[in-house]
Nucleic acid binder design. Structure first.
Length: 708
DNA sequence: GAGCGAAACGAGGAT
DNA sequence: CGTTTCGCTC
């Protein structure tokens, strides 16, 4: 397993002090170089591991780095600081928040907190302002913050800009009142500490003598400044990245950070890693051919070291349904182990058809992202309750749970509460403490409010000497939340209850591992990401977006939905200047495959409940080159006498071919005869008696049947 | 105020 | 297609 470092890697690992850029193509052993570099600094250069700081973008990458580094040094845990930029921001803010004149204890707003807050702000925005959507306003604000700017720094030109600038102020006032920060703040406030507080800057510069950054192409302005400040005193900034894998511009990532690194840090040494240890030459050739169409790149030529004979496949399906069915059928036919397969797509909504198809076949799968555990309503509700325990000023959480379960404080009462809060400049919980004799509110609402406050107070009090698990147990019991979930909609109450119990189990885990208090738990929780949920060891097919797949690798990859509008996404990617990023995204997805890569597309696709017909194939298919792709579609000229898949027969309007008496062959059960059919189209089912004596009712469209 | 069905509306990617 | 909002009744 332990291969020797190649010349390029060796050079990068032993780079002299000072700034260094490692341009590392996909699959060239990036993580390995960082781990080896860390080990080399400790073992050969005698650096105390506590002086090492390695920053990444995902918890998974950080965890992997930590494990391998520890293993390399032969210790249980390394004392170096390894983690994501956001986690590092939180780490420093926990210690230095008071330097910014803010309370030490704060909670973190996630995207759903942000959007519900912004929704209200937009709704209540005075009519003199232009109409903007909450989404656009949040995007406008976030873009500025990622560049560490404020509305004063930029030209506020259009009426929409003006509206956003007004919302900026209100948004931040709300955060301050709620004693909260958002994701961007974790970086922005860290930059402010490092830029404005000399004492803080020097403290962390002294502590971290070597700064290493993975996926440098994904850094935004704030992250760039953090890197600059931390390394300013010693210049030991070692960054690794691949400009061809820059896919997060919408999150503020600036590809120029990596493109200009050598200019920016004048004494920088540059290394290139071009030997690919992951994919076959066929896969690399196709992926390289696609990304070579980009102009804005430094350029690398990847060489495969792995042998392999499978050409990159292309399959064009009739529609999304057929595409999903074919993919599942193909992976079964090839006999792939589920864990070796990934299905990658551009948008989360594409997972649905794949899930249905996999379920029909009885194959295990795991979906990464989308409606994830932590974005479930039940989890959000419980987290909101927990937040109230430690931060009663958090009005966003009050609004979320004040009437969940229903306790007689409806929209009207809440509105009256809000008005009071604004008048008295007091958080909602505070207002509720004063409503006891106030006739403004109906008696029932008043009683409920007092009961609610008492409830939160009593749980908060007992939480001080309880474990997290005990607190959550008490919470769901005494707020009636558990009962509420139990009694909810028959169909999914089991899963909803399971979610609650699973959350409690994870709290128990947290208690055991850390023993931290509720506030720390909440802060840690907000940094858990969707990609963290992926378990490589699970015996299941992995389904995820191309974005989530970054940094992962699989023996077999199906990249589905290769159509204009989907990948590249949007009809105007070209005009918007986003086409190169879409191309890089395609490149990232393709280079996840070790042994076999298959691209698929659908001619007709249902989006937003409407079916789009005769869709155009993705330009990336043409860019990959026809001679580099092999068609996996059935040849239309195949002799009729030869058995052909029923799916194709249906597509050709041959639904009536399957009827009572039709002789068929099943891939597993062998030959048999149709006794009768029910349903039509995709739902057509056939009762079949096989020659083995076995009887089965099968979905014609999905079963591996051939007409004889 | 709660609960229900109908209508309207809306999703790119996610630390 | 899935989710949120609306409008009605109890």
């Amino acid at each position: 397993m332990s291969i020797r470092l190649n010349k390029q890697q060796e050079a990068a690992v032993t780079a002299p002090d000072g700034p260094a850029l490692v341009l590392a193509g996909a699959g060239t052993g990036k993580t390995r170089v960082i781990v080896e570099r860390l080990s080399w600094l400790v073992e050969e250069r005698g650096i105390d591991p506590r002086h090492l700081l390695a920053l990444t973008f995902t918890n998974r990458a950080a965890a992997e780095m930590g494990e391998r580094f520890a293993q390399r040094l032969g210790v249980e845990r390394v004392p170096s600081w390894l983690g994501t930029f956001h986690a590092f921001g939180l780490y420093v803010l926990r210690r230095e928040m008071e330097q910014l004149g803010r309370p030490k204890q704060f909670t973190i707003f996630d995207t759903s907190d942000q959007s519900s807050l912004m929704k209200r702000l937009v709704r209540d925005l005075p009519a003199k302002y232009a109409k903007v959507t909450p989404r656009d306003a949040l995007g406008w604000i976030s873009r500025l913050k990622q560049e560490v700017q404020t509305p004063e720094d930029v030209a506020v030109i259009t009426p929409e800009d003006e509206a956003c600038a007004a919302l900026w102020t209100q948004y931040h006032e709300a955060l301050r009142r709620g004693n909260a920060v958002d994701f961007d703040d974790l970086l922005v406030l860290l930059v402010r500490l490092l830029a404005d507080r000399e004492g803080v800057r020097e403290k962390y510069q002294r502590r971290y003598r070597y700064v290493l950054i993975d996926e440098y192409q994904d850094t935004n302005r704030a992250q760039y400044l953090i890197a600059r400040h931390l390394s300013a005193a010693h210049g030991n900034l070692f960054v690794v990245g691949d400009e061809d894998q820059s896919i997060y511009s919408w999150r503020g990532a600036d590809i120029n950070n990596i493109l200009d690194f050598a200019k920016d840090f004048e004494s920088a040494t540059v290394y290139r890693l071009e030997e690919n240890y992951r994919s076959t030459q066929a896969i690399l050739d196709a992926a390289n051919a696609v990304v070579a169409h980009n102009v804005n790149r430094l350029g690398k030529t990847l060489r495969a070291t792995q042998p392999g004979k499978d050409a990159v496949g292309i399959y064009i399906a009739e529609d999304g349904d057929a595409e999903a069915r074919w993919v599942v059928q193909d992976m079964a036919k090839q006999g792939y182990a589920p864990s070796s397969v990934a299905v990658l797509y551009r948008t989360n909504s594409q997972s649905r058809l794949m899930e249905e198809s996999l379920r029909t076949r009885g194959l295990h799968y795991q979906v990464v992202g989308g409606m994830q555990f932590y974005s479930r309503k039940e989890i959000k509700d419980i987290l909101a309750y927990l937040r109230l325990l430690v931060n009663p000023d958090d009005d966003e959480s009050v609004r979320r749970v004040i009437n969940v379960p229903a306790r007689g404080i409806g929209a009207k009462s809440l509105e009256a509460l809000e008005v009071y809060g604004v008048e008295r400049k007091q958080p909602l919980m505070r207002v509720m403490r004063d409503v006891e004799g106030d006739e403004t509110f109906p008696a029932r609402a008043r009683q409920s409010m007092v009961a609610f406050v008492d409830l939160i107070d009593s749980v908060a009090l007992s939480a001080k000497q309880s474990t997290l698990e005990e607190t959550v147990e008490r919470l769901v019991k005494e707020t009636g939340y558990r009962k509420f979930v139990e009694e909810s909609d028959e169909k999914d109450f089991r899963t909803r209850l399971e979610i609650v119990d699973e959350f409690i189990a994870s709290c128990r885990d947290y208690d055991r591992k850390s023993g931290n208090d509720v506030l720390t738990f909440l802060q840690d929780m907000s940094l858990v990401s969707d990609a963290d949920a992926w378990k490589g060891s699970e015996p299941a097919v992995s389904l995820m977006t191309c974005h989530s797949a970054k940094g992962l690798e699989f023996d077999h990859v199906y990249l589905i939905g290769m159509e204009e509008g989907l990948l590249p996404f949007g009809i105007d990617a070209e005009e918007k200047g986003l086409i190169e990023e879409e191309r890089r995204l395609c490149y990232v997805a393709m280079t996840r495959a070790r042994k076999r890569l298959v691209l698929t597309a659908a001619v007709n696709r249902t989006l937003y409940g409407r079916t789009d017909r005769n869709r155009e194939l993705s330009r990336f298919i043409k860019e990959a080159g026809k001679d580099r792709l092999v068609s996996l579609n059935e040849k239309a000229t195949k002799p009729v006498a030869k058995a052909r898949p029923v799916g194709a027969a249906l597509a050709a309007g041959g639904e009536d071919k399957i009827k009572t008496g039709t002789r068929v062959r099943h891939a597993k059960f062998g030959p048999g005869r149709v006794l009768y059919t029910t349903g039509t189209g995709d739902k057509l089912k056939a009762k079949i008696r096989f020659e083995t004596g076995r009887m089965a009712t099968l979905m014609v469209a999905q079963a591996p049947l051939e007409i004889l």
